[in-house]
């Protein structure tokens, strides 16, 4: 049981996909303009991660080593398509806000990375918690980045204007601002790790 909790927790801080593994940065740069987008993207990616990790770990002995990548991609793409259809049916506004980045979860390297590095070697239970931890770690990273960008770039949090008369530096709403924020956060994470 303790091990399982460890598998879950490592994705959040110690092996955070964004700040430590530096995976899946493209969607991070693109969607982290508002907290709502960050949460939506994080939930969608978590669902795909948990689902694909679970299935891949279940069928790992059935997949021949040499064609594992196409097999993984089919599993991942299936989960992504299910997510997209569900989002279109039940949350069209969010789907519009995230746009092309929902179908692009297929090529998010966190998902394939976990399938290749973890789920194809570990037990089903461990893979499930690894996926969940990584997904939540990704979501928390997105929320942190998008909170900073939404506040500095638009002067808002959750779409609510916080300070009257605060002139936002909307450079932070642009991809270049995202790069700056992510870079600084990565730096802080490394500093924190070096100290502890």
């Amino acid at each position: 049981m303790r091990k399982v909790i460890g598998e879950f927790l490592k994705g959040i801080i110690k092996e955070n996909p964004t700040f430590v593994l530096a995976l899946g940065l493209c969607p991070t740069l693109a969607v982290s303009v508002s907290i709502i987008n960050g949460i939506g993207m994080g939930l969608a990616a978590s669902f795909v991660l948990v689902g694909s990790n679970l299935i891949i770990s279940l069928i790992k002995n059935f997949i021949p080593q040499r064609i594992r990548i196409p097999c993984f991609i089919v599993v991942i793409a299936t989960f992504v398509t299910i997510t997209e259809l569900m989002m279109k049916a039940y949350s069209p506004a969010l789907n519009r806000a995230l746009g092309i980045y929902v179908p692009l979860i297929v090529v998010n390297c966190i998902v394939l990375g976990r399938a290749e590095a973890y789920a194809s070697k570990q037990s089903v239970v461990n893979s499930f918690f690894d996926g969940l931890g990584m997904g939540i770690g990704f979501m928390l990273a997105l929320i942190l980045i998008s909170a900073i960008r939404e506040f500095l770039g638009k002067g808002e949090l959750f779409g609510v204007n916080l300070i009257r008369g605060f002139e936002p530096a909307f450079f932070f709403s642009l991809p270049s601002g995202a790069l700056l924020v992510i870079g600084l956060l990565l730096g802080f994470f490394n500093l924190f790790k070096a100290k502890s």
């Binding site: 069928i59 059935f62 997949i63 021949p64 040499r66 064609i67 196409p70 097999c71 089919v74 599993v75 793409a77 299936t78 398509t81 299910i82 259809l85 569900m86 279109k88 049916a89 039940y90």
Partner: peptide, 27 residues
């Protein structure tokens, strides 16, 4: 290899067809 991949794809397609059939009207 072909057989394994075909089998995985068939299951995936079946699953997607099911999801599509009940989200289509809603979308």
């Amino acid at each position: 290899y072909g057989l394994v991949l075909a089998l995985i794809c068939m299951i995936a397609a079946g699953l997607l067809a099911t999801v599509n059939s009940f989200t289509k009207a809603k979308i």
